[in-house]
């Protein structure tokens, strides 16, 4: 199976469960292929959990000692609450009678796909513990450091309407998420489809097929790194990133790490879109999910329009550029 057909299989598999959201599914897969994490900001019941679960179930397990409930890569879901402790996530040492020793009892972080539900309701301590894992791909408990599987993929969600008793993620931690997207509601037609489907075959949990193996994802991640990105596009990205730093309506521009993340995501996105090269459309498609949450705007209107304008200007500039780099 080629990379393209693998990805096609994966997306179509998830699309069978999550209806009417091909773009969002692609974003999530892109974050996975780019070895990043994704933050879904959405109302409850929009399908975040199902998306995460389906993604995990679509990938079969192999060469891993993690226990997966349904044969795929392991999937854990943690509901974040204000009284959650880092211990609850990471795990803790408990006394083993048989060995007469403390053994480490692994917490839910030791998994492949983690759904961190309502991440903004947890205390900053817990948030930073999670984010350390996401950034370093390792867990420190006491004096021991546990390496996480390179696959480790977090889908965090946060609820935008409930502001009371929440701890909004600081900018530095938002930065750790490769993308921040919003699922949104589906169209009337799709929703009707979903209900009919439910009435016919009941809960879709069990019908998810495993289409890819763990190793396939690792291969795809390696494949994504090989995607070609043209010099001019890189220049375009530099210009775009720079322009966010000088724009009067933007208080805090995009960091260099943000730019690198952007390139990583672009490559993965190109692969997800069956291409082995990045095009200008990719920049336009990814600018919002990848860059928007990294910027701090001076006011609400600016937050809604400025990045779009900057991206359009840059993309148009690239579109007007000829093949031989003549403007």
């Amino acid at each position: 199976m080629t990379a393209a057909s693998k990805l096609l299989a994966l997306t179509s598999n998830i699309e069978r469960i999550i209806r009417g959201k091909p773009q969002e599914i692609k974003y999530v897969i892109t974050a996975l292929i780019a070895r990043g994490h994704i933050l879904l900001e959405d109302n409850p019941g929009a399908g975040k959990t199902v998306l995460a679960k389906t993604l995990a179930q679509s990938i079969s397990e192999a060469a891993t000692d993690f226990h997966a409930p349904s044969g795929g890569v392991s999937f854990k879901r943690v509901q974040f609450t204000p009284d959650l402790l880092p211990m609850d996530l990471i795990g803790s040492y408990i006394f083993d009678e048989s060995k007469k020793d403390f053994v480490f009892k692994r917490g839910p972080l030791f998994t492949h796909v983690l759904l961190a539900d309502e991440i903004n309701r947890a205390s900053p301590k817990v948030q930073s513990a999670l984010l350390e894992c996401m950034a370093e791909n390792q867990i420190s408990s006491g004096d021991t450091t546990f390496e996480l599987d390179p696959f480790f993929f977090t889908i965090a969600t946060q609820n935008p309407i409930e502001m009371e008793g929440t701890y909004p993620l600081p900018a530095a931690q938002l930065d750790r998420f490769f993308m921040k997207i919003s699922m949104g509601y589906v169209t009337e037609e799709v929703e009707f489809d979903i209900y009919t489907n439910y009435l016919e075959i009941g809960d879709s949990k069990h019908t998810v097929k495993q289409v890819l193996a763990y190793q396939d994802i690792i291969n795809l991640q390696k494949e994504a790194e090989k995607v070609h990105i043209h010099q001019e596009l890189v220049r375009g990205i530099v210009r775009l990133v720079q322009s966010t730093r000088h724009h009067p309506e933007i208080a805090l521009g995009c960091s260099t790490r943000g730019g690198i993340t952007f390139i990583k995501c672009l490559k993965a996105w190109a692969l997800v879109n069956q291409r082995d090269f990045v095009i200008e459309d990719d920049i336009k498609a990814l600018a919002q999910p990848v860059l928007h949450h990294r910027l701090i705007f001076r006011n609400r209107e600016a937050a809604q329009t400025v990045l779009g304008k900057l991206t359009d200007a840059e993309v148009n500039r690239l579109a007007k550029m000829g093949i031989n780099n003549k403007a």
């Binding site: 974003y27 779009g308 991206t311 359009d312």
Partner: peptide
């Protein structure tokens, strides 16, 4: 002229 971006926010990301 440079194209004018649409004033509505993008739907897929907020």
């Amino acid at each position: 002229q440079q194209p004018i971006s649409s004033p509505e926010p993008e739907t897929h990301a907020l």
